[in-house]
C-alpha cells in the first residue's frame, strides 16, 4: 500500500476527518494528501506552515521548556469549527501527519489512528 492509500484508509477510518496529509516540516511541503475535496494550494501551504510552527517552530520552541525541551510529538489547534492535528513521525522526526477534523471528532481515536498510520508508513520504508 502506498502512502496515499494509507492516508485514504486513515481518513475513512476516522469519523469527521476531512483531510489527511504527510508533510515535510523542514521544507514545509506536503508530500502526499488524501482529502474529501481537492484542497486549494494556499490551504495546503497554510497547513504545512501551521504544522511547522506547532512541531518545530515558535509554538514548539515556547512550549517545550515545560517538559525539558524535547521537540513535541503532538500538536492540536482547535477552533469551534475545526480541529487540526499534527503528529510527528517516530521514524523520521522531520516529517509529520496532518489531519483536519470536524470540531466534535473523537481526538483520542484520531491520534490512535494517526499513530497506526505513521507506523504503517514507516514499515513500508
Amino acid at each position: 500500500m502506498d502512502i496515499t492509500a494509507e492516508l485514504d484508509a486513515m481518513r475513512a477510518g476516522v469519523k469527521g476527518c476531512a483531510l489527511v496529509a504527510y508533510t515535510d516540516l523542514t521544507s514545509q511541503l506536503m508530500l502526499s494528501t488524501s482529502s474529501v475535496s481537492k484542497p486549494v494550494q494556499e490551504e495546503m501551504n497554510a497547513l504545512a506552515q501551521a504544522a511547522q510552527v506547532s512541531l518545530d517552530g515558535g509554538f514548539a520552541d515556547s512550549a517545550s521548556p515545560s517538559w525539558g525541551g524535547t521537540p513535541p510529538e503532538l500538536a492540536v489547534l482547535m477552533t469551534g469549527s475545526e480541529a487540526r492535528m499534527f503528529l510527528r513521525s517516530p521514524d523520521n522526526p522531520a516529517e509529520a501527519l496532518v489531519c483536519v477534523l470536524a470540531p466534535d471528532t473523537d481526538l483520542d481515536a484520531a491520534v490512535t489512528q494517526a499513530r497506526a498510520t505513521l507506523q504503517q508508513i514507516a514499515a513500508r520504508g
Partner: peptide, 15 residues
C-alpha cells in the same frame, strides 16, 4: 497557526 478569526481557539502541544 490561526489564520481565520474565531471566538474561541485552543492549542495543545505534547511531548
Amino acid at each position: 497557526a490561526f489564520r481565520d478569526p474565531a471566538l474561541a481557539c485552543c492549542t495543545l502541544i505534547a511531548p
